[in-house]
């Protein structure tokens, strides 16, 4: 187990290294730089811009900037955001909780809806329910998240049932504790639905397909022949086997939720990482961009690692240590 973990983490290092080089290179090739906005402001003196170019090492080639960045990273310093003038780590730390809550809730939401729906669709294969749920799945998969987010914003604005974006109400800090929790919940409903909807559909299809595979398996027939009750056959024997691919799929979901959340957060005005990364990209705030990309990669690898571990735990046939 431990050697497996060490191997996976060791394999990640060169990957992250390569990605960081690529990000710096791409940022250097991209036209313009962080100071463009200052350059077109008439009342910012030229000396100041030159001074800033020097300070941000923008007058040097990208590999020189990369080298000094790498030197700092080795010492645990991810640099300072040029926009905010605070350490990148601090900046990301402000925003991570909001995004993690949203991601976790949408995964949870997706699983809670998708597993029962998938199972039901498999059990009642070809029924009206199965057809309807397939239709829903295809529709949900084909609607891009940002569009769904726009629809949700419109829904909220027209009905007034939900807040139009944000994470808290204006008077949030004046509320007692429980009202504040309710306020969070109220604001989280729509973003969770929007972000989770796509995963519901894909989880459901995976669940249905696997469930159908196992319904016809020999051990199911055996169990039935032995007189095990139908509910037990379905929910103990079949479900436990059918759920494995879902676990490995959720490793990728963690990363895809993060990328999906960039768009959704921007449309729904949700104060998470998405907004920050988007702004950093637009302004070419180099260290924030590279840190954000690296974090996305780490999330992806971590997600996969967790999925593998869970799989091993669920499925006694899988042994991590034997290669």
């Amino acid at each position: 187990m431990l050697s497996f973990l060490i191997r996976r983490i060791a394999a990640a290092v060169p990957l992250l290294f390569g990605i960081s080089v690529l990000v710096f290179l791409l940022m250097a090739i991209a036209p313009g730089d962080f100071l463009d906005v200052a350059r077109t402001q008439q009342d910012i003196p030229e000396e100041y811009i030159e001074r800033m170019e020097e300070e941000f090492a923008l007058d040097q080639p990208w590999y020189a900037r990369y080298a000094s960045w790498l030197g700092n990273v080795v010492q645990g310093n991810f640099g300072e955001s040029w926009i905010y003038r605070i350490p990148v780590a601090d900046l990301l730390k402000q925003r991570i909780p909001a995004t993690l809550v949203l991601s976790a809730l949408s995964i949870l939401f997706a699983l809670c809806i998708a597993i029962p729906l998938g199972v039901l669709a498999a059990i009642f294969k070809d029924s009206i329910f199965d057809r309807l749920s397939s239709m829903f799945a295809y529709a949900a998969l084909s609607i891009p998240e940002f569009f769904l987010a726009l629809l949700a914003v419109m829904f909220a604005a027209n009905t007034g049932l939900f807040p139009v974006g944000g994470l808290t109400s204006m008077d949030h800090e004046f509320m007692p504790f429980w009202s504040r929790m309710v306020d969070y919940a109220h604001h989280l409903v729509l973003p969770t639905l929007v972000l989770g909807m796509g995963s519901v559909a894909s989880y459901m299809r995976i669940m249905r397909a696997n469930f159908l595979d196992y319904i016809r398996a020999d051990f199911v027939t055996t169990a039935r022949a032995k007189g095990v009750g139908e509910g037990r056959v379905m929910f103990v024997h079949v479900l436990r086997n059918a759920i494995n691919p879902l676990v490995s799929a959720s490793g990728f979901i963690l990363a895809s939720l993060l990328s999906g959340s960039i768009l959704v957060e921007n449309v729904m005005n949700y104060p998470g990482l998405g907004q920050l990364i988007f702004e950093a990209l637009m302004r070419q705030d180099e260290f924030v961009v590279v840190a954000a990309v690296l974090m996305g990669c780490i999330m992806l690898m971590l997600g996969n690692l967790i999925a593998d571990l869970l799989l091993a735990w669920f499925d006694p046939r899988i042994r991590l240590d034997k290669n």
């Binding site: 109400s169 008077d171 004046f174 509320m175 009202s179 309710v182 306020d183 919940a185 109220h186």
Partner: peptide
């Protein structure tokens, strides 16, 4: 959901400010 709405509506009153 109804409780949520009620709580938010009440929360919007001026006294909080």
């Amino acid at each position: 959901v109804l409780v949520l709405i009620l709580v938010t509506v009440c929360g919007c009153q001026e006294e909080t400010w």
